[in-house]
Nucleic acid binder design. Sequence first.
DNA 1: TCAAAAGTGTTAGATTTACACCCATGA
DNA 2: TCATGGGTGTAAATCTAACACTTTTGA
Lengths: 213, 213
Amino acid sequence: MSVDCIIFGFDEGKLKVLVGRRQMDPGRGEWSLYGGFVAADESLDDAAERTLQDLTGMKKIFMRQVGAFGRVDRDPGERVISIAYYALINVKDYSEKLRAEHQVEWVSINELPRLYSDHNEMVQKAWRMMKQKMRTEPIGFRLLPSLFTLTQLQRLYEAVGGELIDKRNFRKRIKDMDFIEKTELIDKTTSKRGAYLYRFNNRVYNEDSNFKL
Amino acid sequence: MSVDCIIFGFDEGKLKVLVGRRQMDPGRGEWSLYGGFVAADESLDDAAERTLQDLTGMKKIFMRQVGAFGRVDRDPGERVISIAYYALINVKDYSEKLRAEHQVEWVSINELPRLYSDHNEMVQKAWRMMKQKMRTEPIGFRLLPSLFTLTQLQRLYEAVGGELIDKRNFRKRIKDMDFIEKTELIDKTTSKRGAYLYRFNNRVYNEDSNFKL
DNA sequence: TCAAAAGTGTTAGATTTACACCCATGA
DNA sequence: TCATGGGTGTAAATCTAACACTTTTGA
């Protein structure tokens, strides 16, 4: 009984997944998701949470179950049933040191190599679920810094949805959502002119509550 | 490691679930979903399929995984992780004899009693997923006889969605879907005038392919 | 001065919703 | 003949999609 984590990040305008070389037999050296075993005294969710924290050092990561994967021959050694979870983190919040220690790296979801066992399937299913959830719940902000520009947000939705979005229509929809607040701060790293920084206000969201992108 | 099945049926204008009294300890006698254990040499899907067939005698039942349920204390005896599956069957196709033998009955989803362990959670999640899928994929027909009236179909969507639908708008949408074919047959069981019977043509659906209700 | 990203409204078309009456029949 | 469920169309409102130019500023 194990858990495997599909950890999504957003960087360089691309949706990425954290993958590494498998450290144990069978399949040592193959590209793989990061996972762990479920202890006798912990729930599946707890196991996933612990695994995520072990890898990233971060707590309270947004995480959802993808499902159970249980082909008989999915693990060439003994029989292992694995529960997949996807998680969303901000790439910049992840300690480079920890990342290197665990020998995992961010790979664009469009350029994923063949992964160990059924891990590619897990990624595809996780992506599908995450995409769906991102349309109707404000979870995308977990992939961004707490202050972000509208262009960044748009690029995120484009990367996840896999298609370009009209800038004016996108911004119109954002304006209707009061919980996406414009600050007076300006980010000048991506343009000479600079772009206003926005923030997601969860308190306001919980009052008025409706999200659709 | 077990599987639990949320078997949906549609009868008397209501969405129903097949539940029975639990036959083993712990929890003997409590209302419960029908389940079974996963054998060492079968996949999760195979285990669910076998369990469904064992209960209903039917093969090739439409079935989807709901997810893994793994609270440590979810089973008061030893630790059991369960994978829930939902399935759709036509109530009329289910042998009354088999049903009685297994001592399970159809209970309206709105009148479900408290079920064993976390089974109520499973049902709710299954319902949510099924509802979602029924909007965009033509799976609802599995809950109906192969010939059905438009009123039956509408009642089904109302029962699953939990709200009333405008008759004319509903029928307008049906007309746009060429794979829902009107036959020349008339059902006179529900009205004096009689209503045309329709059928879902999967072949046509696979050609033209788009469903939205 | 110019290249590059930020910012901003309008309009046509498509989709969705609301709504009320006649039809056919068996009892 | 009448009660019951079957069947049908239109118009307003809303939502969606397409589309192009001006602004700011650092190099």
